[in-house]
Design a protein around this nucleic acid. Structure first.
Lengths: 360, 360
DNA sequence: GTCTCTTATGACACCGATGACATGACACCG
DNA sequence: CGGTGTCATGTCATCGGTGTCATAAGAGAC
């Protein structure tokens, strides 16, 4: 690979002048510039970032760690990689800042995080982002030197800056929208309460009911999340069957996520109940492959992964440039409700009111 | 950030000795080693890859370019990111070789590839991998210097080494398996023939029929792929309806991919046809969120993305280490048939023969 | 004509590691 | 006891750029 000295020799100038042409940090005569540019083209010269970095002490690198990309060796459970949208958002933001992203993954093994961080530090990354596969608490090894770090889709108890989905608000907005559409008996087939999303969304559900003047009814809520183990379909079947036999059965089922909604579609059809004319269904995640492909298309709440990635990158860049007006605590990012045909409007007259609700 | 000189001073030795402790490339006395290690720990010293790289002329970096991560600004069409499994496979392989992966994406815009390649060359990556979102032909700018490059999930007409899914074999194996199960009228709702997967899979379908002694019947094949535009469900409905009215209707529908199969489930149920007792359905891709969640679970062919990633990394590493016994032409990677409950065995007696067919 | 100011360019050291080579201290050999 | 080999360590140059400073050539001011 050609060096700046080769270029200088061919162009008949000093290396420093070549450097000036490359960086435009001082005026260069027209004839000289052209000679240099021609030499560069002739040699296919590409400057070395390593050398540049040694002097400038800036790497232009951001390290990204995720358990997302490689999962357990026998990936029975994790099927989608939605958090890759977070990476997309990060990448989009960073490209504008001239940063290059290095990426590595833990393969789902937490212990691998430390050596990966070390590798990144050797490359003198200017910032680190850790992306989790779902909204959760994590415990990463502390970074001894001052390299800034951001958590995306997760948080820790050291107060590391975090970007999180606003699960509470998402479920709240969806349920509020259902209430506006006239639904008052709202079944909720929840995720397990052990995970953050499960807890927060249930709270959002309750808050929206309260605002709508609807009493919470425990008979309308069932945890149908078996953590990926088999039997989920049966659990759903039983919960749905039980709720539909109530004296005032639900007119709509909210599901913990879109995947669950996909199962619920099959179950309701097997029961001979038409969606949405006889019973409505809503999901969560806006997992497009499911939500848009299902018939009828699924009403759901967007998990704003891309936006979270953008925010993560922005907040990291702010930390790197040392801006003082730094937010404390986690940044919550809310996603819009995607209103599709899987939910009936029980009172069409109300549609005019809908503008007050956040929608796509 | 501490340097090797700081460590040397604290430990009371020369920088070179510190280097020796770090790299273990020459014997170091026990007492000296311990002094150095203690100094390293005390200073939180992390060696600089940039400096190391300048001398060794080896970066330990691999550049990965993909259009996968960030797609069109208004992502209506691309919903899944299955090719990220390719990245997973690559990453898994590279980690074992001590390589670090840099990643960037074109955002779907081909013109962005050139500057990204340039960025990677500045970092003196030792190899490049381009990953496409689906099996296709691409035209990338040539790499002027000799940096090795691999195409994954795509190919060009310059003969750049490529890793491709064996679509022909996948569809062939699936259909052969269907024949073994007793199906002789096999409907095929295809992807559009303009894309590689559409063509190759159709050929595999025909080849398997021929081997099974079954005549090809054009009435059983319909292109139901509208390139993401609306109306696909209607097109599917019409094709299925027409085929089911044939004097000898198909006993199974093969679908161009799992997403199409998801639609077909809904359509068949709306038509009042039970899957799989009245009619069987098979997909392609083994898109787990769909294939495993659907009821009944979907018989499909695995698109071996992870394996392709592994192969891509292996082939690249072979090129980097300059091994001569280099394969020519594309590497085809076949995925197994995942036999699930969406297809009926018409002749259970035949099950004993199945061992000859590749399965999970 | 001389002084100053700008423009254009070069000389040189330095960033942080490591390869090549040198050196000093022992151990072992005949 | 001198020769030779091994171990442990140091010296110095070097990788490829760029920051700092110096310098030469004109342009314009007085």
């Amino acid at each position: 690979m050609a060096t700046i000295y080769d270029v200088a020799r061919i162009a008949g100038v000093s290396p420093k002048t070549v450097s000036r042409v490359l960086n435009g940090d001082a005026p260069v005569g027209k004839a000289t510039r052209e000679a240099v540019e021609s030499a560069i083209a002739q040699l296919d010269y590409v400057p070395s970032n390593a050398a540049r970095m040694m002097r400038s002490q800036r790497s232009g690198l951001i390290g990204l760690i995720t358990g997302a990309i490689s999962m357990s060796p026998e990936p029975t459970q994790p099927a989608g990689l939605p958090e890759l949208f977070i990476v997309q958002g990060i990448q989009k933001s960073l490209a504008n800042s001239g940063m290059t992203m290095m990426i590595a993954d833990t393969g789902g093994v937490v212990e691998k995080a430390a050596p990966l961080i070390d590798t990144f530090l050797r490359h003198r990354v200017e910032g680190l982002i850790y992306v989790a596969e779902y909204h959760q608490k994590v415990a990463l090894p502390a970074i001894s030197d001052g390299t800034p770090m951001i958590l995306a889709n997760c948080f820790d108890d050291r107060g590391t800056p975090a970007i999180l989905p606003d699960d509470w608000r998402g479920q709240h907005d969806l349920v509020a929208r259902l209430v506006t559409a006239g639904h008052r008996r709202i079944g909720y087939l929840t995720l397990r309460p052990e995970i953050a999303a499960g807890r927060l969304r249930l709270e959002g559900y309750r808050a929206a009911l309260q605002t709508g003047g609807i009493a919470y009814d425990a008979a309308l809520v069932a945890n149908c999340d078996l953590e990926g183990r088999d039997g989920e379909t049966q659990l759903l079947w039983e919960a749905i069957d039980r709720m539909l036999r109530l004296s005032t059965p639900p007119t709509v089922f909210c599901c913990g996520n879109d995947k669950m909604a996909l199962r619920v579609y099959g179950i309701l059809r097997s029961m001979g109940r038409k969606v949405p004319t006889e019973v409505s269904v809503a999901g969560y995640d806006n997992y497009r492959v499911i939500a848009e492909t299902l018939y009828p298309p699924l009403t759901t709440v967007d998990l704003p992964y891309t936006a979270m990635g953008v925010r993560a990158a922005q907040r990291l860049m702010a930390m790197i440039s040392g801006e003082t007006r730094e937010e404390k605590g986690p940044t919550l990012v809310a996603g819009p409700v995607y209103w599709r045909d899987s939910v009936t409007e029980l009172r069409p007259a109300n549609v005019s009111l809908l503008k007050s609700v956040r929608e796509e």
